[in-house]
Design a binder for these strands. Sequence first.
RNA 1: CGGGGCGUAGCUCAGCUUGGUAGAGCGCACGGUUCGGGACCGUGAGGCCGGAGGUUCAAAUCCUCUCGCCCCGACCA
Length: 570
Amino acid sequence: MRWSRFYLYTTREVPNDAEVISHQLMVRAGLIKKVAAGIYTYLPFGWRSLQKLMAIVRREMNAAGAVELSMPAIQPAELWVESGRWQRYGKELLRIKDRHERDFVFGPTHEEVITDTVRRDVKSYRQLPFNLYQIQTKFRDEIRPRFGLMRGREFLMKDAYSFGADAASLDQDYEAMRAAYCRIFEACQLDYTMVEADTGTIGGSASHEFMVVADTGESAVVRCPSCGYAANVEKAETRTVEAAAATEAHPPQALEEVATPGKHTIEEVARFLKVSPKRLVKTLIYETEKGLVAALIRGDREINEVKLLNHFDVEHLALASEEKVRAATGAPVGFAGPVGLKDVPIVADESIRGLTNFVTGANKGDAHYVNVNWGRDVDLADWTDLVLVTGGDPCPRCDGTLELFRGIEVGHIFKLGTKYSEKLGCNFTDEEGNDHPMIMGCYGLGIGRTVAAAIEQNHDKDGIVWPRPLAPFEVLLIALNPEDAEVKRTAEELYAQLQEKGVDVLFDDRDERPGVKFKDADLIGIPVRITVGAKSLADGKVEVSLRRDREKRLVAPGEAVGKVMESLGR
RNA sequence: CGGGGCGUAGCUCAGCUUGGUAGAGCGCACGGUUCGGGACCGUGAGGCCGGAGGUUCAAAUCCUCUCGCCCCGACCA
């Protein structure tokens, strides 16, 4: 491709809405252009990279036995009503009406459509199992789209859905997808980790996420360097601090109410009473669709709301409003406690089980109880793991210590089970003639996000440093002085030879100054560069260099193509 | 959804406080000099100042409404 005939325009200025480096570089290097919040045009240069990734994904999906199809982006509301998600999905679901005022959605995911398709075609165990996938544009009306392709509203996703007769079949498909995902991210040369994940609104039993390690990632993840345990913090467990019981146990003291005027945060109360936040029990009142609930946790720790949501088996969960807290506890926010708290289900984190003589709110303005003890003052039946795990916590699987890092979620695989097949009546008949819902799995992979993540991981101060498999072109051929007859002849010859070899080459034949060409070359980050300039050509040489190290190697024009093929590993 | 900010040339922004009819840099066009790390000089094109309404002799500037965009928060008890 000749640059002069291609559509690639770089900019020097950083757009004012681009915060993270991958977004800035994707705009500056002419990969994407914003059309509306979270909605982008994939410009030719960016589209080439996305296509490279999609080719890798298709190759690995096909190799893993999945079969490609393509489903509609616009879906009838009836299917979503049938699955129950029309009511549950919330505002992220873009709902639209056609001219007859019939309801539709712009698909954020395709469980409903695929399940509907399959239930019409598949009736017998003899037809199972299979795995269908597509690469397609989805829309999720995010509260806050940001970071360019990392969190867009419209985005490209590969989604696959497996259907089987039993759990063993699902395990096989799941494992095949897990392995395929590893091959995909390895093929992209990304530094990634697979972590245990919560199943979220999609639902199901087991789930793993693929995280590309990056400080700008929106997900927090813990990993144990000793045993390899890794999990999204939404899901992560830690070894229960049973040590607390032994070291913290003291003979019970008399329960006492103390005045704590205006002290309504843990920190204020702890400082005021001169006790460690670890000896405070934090009582949080949450609002759910089933009513108010109270959750107790040690003062120095945070609640993992996903765990709480799962524990109470509710769809929505949010901290209760000021008025509701007052109505439930009889006290303003900041003074809630389990002692004497009535009509609200209480669940407590294991971290406070061993505490004695601890501090809680008194359910009364400006007052706390000290020397509270389990059994004597509060009788709790509901104990579980609610803690938001963080770096430094003990590993739940070995005696290691967890490390915290951030990641970009580029893939997510679920064992769905029968959640959708039951709702939509996607059944098959077994050998005995009995009907069963099919066992499903679903496997998502963010295409645009993966490319953004690759840039996040592969750049320097001058621009993108593409991993070769995702690079829009493999080779950038620069004619430094195209008006020089010898330079032009040599560059044209090299261009023809590279094309003949099937190399993806971008030929910078533009009438630009050398400085501009070099700056652009660094910015767009094509892995291998050949520079043909009058100076080195006078010595009978052209220059071959790699974007990653930029070390210049002078070779005779006749050897350049061989050198390039070697650099590309072909 | 709550809080804050911003919409002025293709891009990044100044001008607004103290109303008087629009600017810079980059980019673009033309001419000249340049030509191995985003050149220089000159000339020029390009904006109903997001939109609507109001105040005023006069509005980019003040007021109201509206639309769009961005940031923070929504893990505080």
